[in-house]
């Protein structure tokens, strides 16, 4: 009993520290990749090749004046950035990040908790992230923030449907909602081979869920200043960024778990395989951001409802047919 409690606490601490550290250093990675794509150097001053830049940014934001606009709903204004971070950090609780290890005669699974509805747990929590953005936009008492909030709310609802439906094919093949089971089902073949369309839809829809370019209509700098976080400064602003980048790590981990075989791989230790795959998927997200221009608002809605949604439905039907034909 005591052993499991301590093991769980240690796992939670590792995941927390890992996620926050990764979120901080992703800001640097993003700037470095952007610089490489645009043929420049990126941050070079703080530390070797800008390695201390995230810490410098953090200190700067921490000591900045905390401005709350006049007429803002103070409670919701402060609550909104927190709501963004919580779902992003909590989602990782069900993701298995390594093969079970033996410690003192016990087999400890490298996963904080294996709930039997793992996928649904993830979907339910990620669907809540939108509240932080929407509330932040509303509570700021500013036109641009409100516009950003409204845009984001409409966008999230449109893309969530496609996001959920793109996973159904995986659930059908694996026959289970638990993520540990889904990973062990992929020991022979990764699910991306069976579900390439599902993978593409998930990649696009999750980019939209995270509000990243080319789907960052909620904060479009060229049109509505900075959208929902126009009025934010200091640590509240930093919280929005931590939330966004933690969400990116979590989404990559979900993609790795569902489509790329989770922690499984030859030769190297399982945790290392997991990290390598997650890093690879993060690179895809960054690459997407610095390659495509922002969509127009009607194009965004068209893509979500008229292209991704029918495609996801067709994917489910085709998967079902093939499974019946192969008698699985």
């Amino acid at each position: 009993m005591m052993f499991w409690l301590i093991a769980d606490i240690i796992k939670i601490l590792i995941v927390f520290a890992g996620l926050l550290g990764a979120a901080a250093y992703l800001t640097l990675l993003e700037r470095k990749i952007a610089a490489r794509i645009q043929n420049r150097m990126g941050p070079m001053e703080a530390g070797f090749h800008g390695l201390l830049q995230p810490i410098a940014d953090g200190i700067k934001l921490f000591f900045k004046e905390d401005i709350i606009p006049a007429g803002a709903n103070k409670f919701l204004f402060l609550l909104a950035p927190i709501i963004v971070v919580i779902p992003a950090l909590t989602t990782f609780a069900v993701i298995p990040f390594g093969a079970p290890v033996k410690i003192m005669g016990h087999t400890v699974p490298l996963q904080i908790t294996d709930v039997n509805i793992g996928i649904l747990f993830i979907l339910a929590l990620t669907s809540l992230g939108v509240y932080g953005v929407v509330l932040g936009g509303w509570a700021s008492n500013s036109k641009y923030s409100l516009l950003g909030g409204i845009r984001t709310a409409a966008q999230m609802i449109s893309y969530e449907v496609a996001l959920v439906l793109s996973i159904v094919g995986i659930i059908m093949i694996a026959g289970d909602l638990s993520l540990a089971k889904i990973v062990s089902e992929q020991s022979h073949m990764w699910f991306i081979v069976y579900q390439p369309v599902g993978f593409i839809i998930y990649l696009i829809a999750s980019t939209a869920e995270m509000n990243r370019v080319p789907f960052d209509l909620g904060e479009a700098e060229g049109e509505i200043v900075a959208g929902f976080h126009t009025e934010y400064s200091s640590m509240e602003f930093a919280f929005y960024f931590i939330g966004e980048y933690a969400q990116m790590v979590v989404n990559s981990a979900i993609i790795v778990t569902l489509f790329l075989g989770g922690w499984q791989g030859p030769f190297l230790p399982s945790v290392l395989w997991f990290l390598i795959k997650v890093f690879f998927v993060i690179l895809i997200y960054l690459w997407l951001r610095w390659t495509y221009p922002r969509l127009r608002y009607d194009e965004l809605m068209d893509l979500g409802w008229k292209f991704l949604l029918p495609l996801a439905l067709a994917n489910i039907i085709v998967t079902g047919f093939i499974m019946i034909l192969l008698n699985r």
Binding site: I117, L120, F121, L123, A124, L125, S127, L128, V130, Y131, V134, L135, G137, W138, L146, G149, I150, A153, A154, M156, I157, E160, V164
Partner: peptide, 22 residues
């Protein structure tokens, strides 16, 4: 429980909030 959060809190209430904001 998951459906309660996913459908009601995550989708329907977002629509309600959107309408209130609009």
């Amino acid at each position: 429980a998951a459906m309660q959060i996913l459908v009601y809190a995550g989708a329907i209430m977002v629509l309600v909030v959107l309408v209130i904001m609009l």
